[in-house]
């Protein structure tokens, strides 16, 4: 019983921190066998209307409940099993780290999403989901009239506790936060070739790993501050992501990480700007900071000089020793 209480306590503590704004109705009693669903809708906070952004959405199952030992436990699964994620210690701050860790695992192990789907009319729905913790990643670009729409990866749990914590929600509806990358004017981008990748030359101290050092579209952490007023939505220069839940929907906000890298490509023949999410192999990468320790260039030499120095010195010492030794013998004779 103690373990069950502990697991429930963990879930209860974990879920509110890692969830996004969710439309919450009355909760149900916990049923370990019940499947759930996730619906992610990108909506305009001013109007509540869905924003059609034509994105691909991938769902990765990070953790699952386990009752095989006679009590409810939550374990990391699959490629994430060995990841450095402590489900017992989750906070708004650590959620960013967890997402980052998950993205690193996905990048390193080429993890295939458990589910994927295309967002239609701003909404994507995944049904018949096992209970567990999921990472939602918007991989495709999104376009609005004002520019490209970017949704940061985020975590969701199925089920999740209702806002008043009187039960559990199995059909989770989330309204992820987004930022809008303004469409640059065609004249802003020099296009010497028909298709040019615009990748600003990075600083020497940047980190090369795409998952480690996302090129921020926004300089602040979306979701880390208070919600912007509704009229800030789809504002090109807005720093913080807007809260996009429709009016009247209770919010449970969590920390987010910066959006993944996006390439802005512009065709010379058309003013249309396309934002594509990395991993695009041909983006510019920065000089590595670790493990080379900026500001030095990587050490790419064999230890050749020490070999020469030591061998010459050794020969000299050996020779001196032999001379010294033979000199003593001569003296004795």
């Amino acid at each position: 019983m103690k373990n069950i209480h502990r697991a429930i306590a963990v879930l209860t503590c974990v879920i509110p921190f890692i969830l996004y704004p969710v439309g919450v109705m009355a909760g149900e009693e916990y049923d370990p066998n019940r499947a759930g669903s996730i619906q992610s809708s990108v909506v305009d906070a001013r109007t509540g209307d869905p924003i059609d952004h034509d994105a691909d959405v991938m769902l990765y199952m990070i953790a699952a409940p386990d009752t095989s030992k006679g009590f409810l436990n939550v374990n990391l699964i699959g490629d994430f099993a060995s990841a450095d994620i402590n489900l017992m210690d989750i906070s708004p701050e650590s959620e960013a780290t967890i997402v980052k860790t998950c993205l690193a695992v996905i990048s390193e192990k080429r993890t295939n999403p458990d589910f994927s789907g295309a967002s239609q009319n701003g909404t994507v729905h995944f049904g018949d989901l096992r209970q567990g913790l999921y990472l939602v990643v918007y991989s495709g670009s999104g376009k609005t009239a004002e520019g490209g729409l970017i949704v940061s990866p985020y975590l969701l749990s199925v089920p999740m506790p209702s806002v008043d914590e009187d039960g559990w929600l199995y059909d989770v509806v989330s309204y992820p936060k987004y930022i809008v990358q303004p469409t640059p004017a065609p004249t802003d981008i020099a296009a010497p070739e028909p298709m040019v990748t615009v990748t600003p030359r990075p600083d020497a101290t940047s980190i090369p790993n795409p998952t480690e050092a996302p090129r921020p579209v926004s300089t602040s952490r979306p979701g880390s501050g208070p919600a912007s007023p509704p009229d800030a939505v789809v504002q090109p220069d807005v720093d913080d992501a807007e809260t996009n839940a429709p009016a009247g929907v209770p919010l449970i906000t969590g920390a987010l990480i910066q959006p993944p890298i996006y390439n802005i490509e512009q065709s010379a023949n058309t003013p249309e700007t396309v934002i594509t999410q990395t991993p695009d192999p041909d983006i510019a990468i920065e000089p590595a900071a670790p493990p080379f320790g900026a500001p030095d260039l990587p050490q790419t030499g064999l230890n050749r000089l020490p070999v020469v120095i030591m061998s010459v010195l050794g020969c000299v010492l050996l020779l001196l020793g032999l001379i010294d030794s033979s000199g003593k013998r001569d003296l004795k004779q």
């Binding site: 030591m310 050794g314 000299v316 010492l317 050996l318 020779l319 020793g321 010294d324």
Partner: peptide, 10 residues
């Protein structure tokens, strides 16, 4: 010492 050190270095 000289011989030993020289041998070690070599």
């Amino acid at each position: 010492f000289l011989i030993g050190t020289g041998c070690v270095l070599i």
